[in-house]
């Protein structure tokens, strides 16, 4: 399933998508040209709580980190690891995504031959 076009995710932008089969939104974030995807679930509490303070507001002011806006936990965008805040050292759940031939960002299917990002 295509979440959005690559061109619809700007540098320094994060967006949340409701995806069939996932109980939480999937966050897409683009930084330094790289696209990462994570489950919208902060590991501070065991159930994992959604992180934005309003729709798509997942980043800090400098747009250098993903943030859980319940208690300010900051996550490295490349690795998903919490570098400050309640869940220090824990990580977001990464979701593999691929770019399809028409430039759409998709959750990676378990098939070979697709470009991995």
């Amino acid at each position: 399933m295509e979440l959005c076009r690559k061109n619809d995710l700007e540098e320094g932008q994060a967006r949340g998508f409701t995806v069939a089969g996932f109980d939480r939104k999937i966050i897409l974030v683009r930084r330094d040209g790289r696209i990462r995807a994570y489950r919208d679930a902060c590991p501070h509490y065991s159930a994992g709580t959604p992180m934005a303070w309003k729709t798509d507001a997942y980043l800090n002011g400098a747009r250098t980190h993903l943030v859980c806006h319940a208690h300010g936990a900051q996550f490295d965008i490349d690795t998903g690891k919490c570098v400050s805040g309640p869940c220090l050292g824990q990580s977001l759940t990464a979701i593999p995504v691929t770019i399809n031939q028409s430039g759409g960002i998709e959750i990676a299917a378990q098939t070979e031959g697709e470009e991995s990002v």
């Binding site: 992180m51 934005a52 303070w53 002011g61 859980c68 806006h69 319940a70 208690h71 300010g72």
Partner: peptide, 9 residues
């Protein structure tokens, strides 16, 4: 409770 950009709910 609402999340916020203040680092707390």
């Amino acid at each position: 409770y609402f999340k916020s950009p203040l680092g707390c709910n």
